[in-house]
């Protein structure tokens, strides 16, 4: 005899319940938390370097940066005098909500207006794990190909902003900006899109304005 028990239970309920707890903390303390996702080398750390350098001092930023190994990114970002903590996943290809919660205790969150979470370089796995963020942001560089939004729809479908990075390289690569924008809008009609170059500084003001608008709405 076989007996079937209906469940309808989320497999990642443990993660999601921690994420709900984190979201409640962020909302009550008015911390804008941004989960930044992108391939290795898309420019997530470079964008954060520009951000920490130029963000108006009235907005107090902190960073949690995830990698499988090394604290290289934390060292790069610590130069700007803002609180930065490295999360080393030791093999895991994404951050999960528990990792954020453990690190949050070590940040003085009452002194933070914006928490940047730099996810592990990966366009697939981070999409499955809610970190309690206000928004997911995808950083896509023009050297990667304009079809990425439809190749990796899970990540793009949940993002509020697409940062098209390294646009200074456009003359040298067969990347069609209009096609990339069209593909992103197809997967996620409401997505905002900003074009940046962390080398020339182009578009960084647009990105900072996007953050400020979100932060002032908290």
């Amino acid at each position: 005899m076989k007996k079937r028990i209906a469940l309808k239970q989320k497999v990642l309920e443990n993660n999601d319940s921690i994420a709900r707890r984190l979201r409640a903390v962020f909302e009550s303390q008015k911390i804008l938390t941004l989960n930044m996702i992108g391939s290795p080398g898309a420019g997530k750390t470079a964008l954060l370097e520009q951000t920490l350098r130029r963000l108006p001092s009235g907005l107090r930023a902190a960073v949690l940066t995830g990698d499988i190994e090394t604290d290289n990114d934390a060292a790069r970002l610590a130069r700007f005098g803002k609180p930065v903590r490295q999360i080393t996943t030791g093999g895991a290809c994404h951050l999960d909500a528990g990792m954020i919660e453990r690190e949050l205790d070590k940040l003085e969150t009452q002194k933070v207006d914006i928490l940047f979470v730099e996810n592990v370089g990966n366009l697939v796995c981070p999409a499955s794990f809610d970190l309690g963020e206000a928004s997911k942001i995808v950083v896509l560089s023009v050297t990667e190909g304009d079809d990425k939004p439809i190749k990796y729809p899970a990540t793009f479908a949940k993002a509020d902003l697409l940062v098209l990075n390294k646009i200074d390289l456009l003359p040298h690569v067969p990347f069609d900006l209009a096609r990339a924008r069209g593909n992103a809008k197809r997967v996620r009609p409401g997505i905002d899109i900003i074009e940046t170059s962390c080398l020339s500084g182009e578009g960084i003001d647009d990105w900072l304005r996007w953050i400020q608008t979100r932060a002032s709405a908290m």
Partner: peptide, 13 residues
């Protein structure tokens, strides 16, 4: 379309 869930478990009695 973004779910990962267990719908049922079947046991042998």
């Amino acid at each position: 379309g973004d779910e990962i869930e267990i719908v049922y478990v079947e046991f042998e009695e």
